[in-house]
């Protein structure tokens, strides 16, 4: 697809809005439809689109597979870390109420952090899977 000028120009204008939309979905998931799962998939779709148009090597410069691997584990770690933080603060595992002064504030913070962990893991796992599939054909 490297020589297709129209596709490249359209995609270049599309990718930034897709990334902003992914961030919106991630952090607005409390109030409207959305959340970590959707945001992660949309963000990875933006990078996959980039890699389809400009080649895998260019995309791997944006996020190297090593970084993606670290991020994938980091997301799970954030999720579990929130659970252990609540235990250390005297609550049950994943009971966010103890994270802040009031119950609602604590729940809000907990949900935000957990969704962040989900988004990071889903995005980087999707990217890793895509890189593995696309990289298999390389000599």
């Amino acid at each position: 697809m490297k020589h297709n000028l129209i596709l490249r120009v359209t995609a270049k204008t599309l990718i930034p809005p897709i990334i902003i939309f992914a961030l919106y979905v991630q952090f607005h998931g409390d109030f409207g439809p959305g959340g970590g799962f959707q945001a992660g998939v949309i963000l990875s779709a933006a990078i996959i689109l980039y890699s389809l148009l400009f080649g895998l090597d260019a995309a791997e410069k944006v996020i190297t597979p090593t970084v993606a691997r670290i991020l994938a584990s980091l997301g799970v770690l954030i999720y579990m870390g929130v659970g252990f933080a609540t235990v250390l603060l005297g609550g049950n595992y994943l009971d966010y109420s103890v994270l802040a002064d009031t119950q609602v504030a604590g729940q809000h913070l907990g949900i935000l952090l957990v969704e962040l962990g989900v988004g990071v893991t889903v995005c980087s796992v999707m990217l890793l899977i895509f890189f593995a599939f696309a990289g298999r054909g390389r000599p």
């Binding site: 409390d30 109030f31 504030a105 729940q107 809000h108």
Partner: peptide
């Protein structure tokens, strides 16, 4: 009242 999150799907999913 429990979580302050209007999107029930998110509150059930995460909390």
């Amino acid at each position: 009242s429990d979580t302050g999150v209007p999107n029930v799907v998110t509150s059930v999913l995460a909390s």
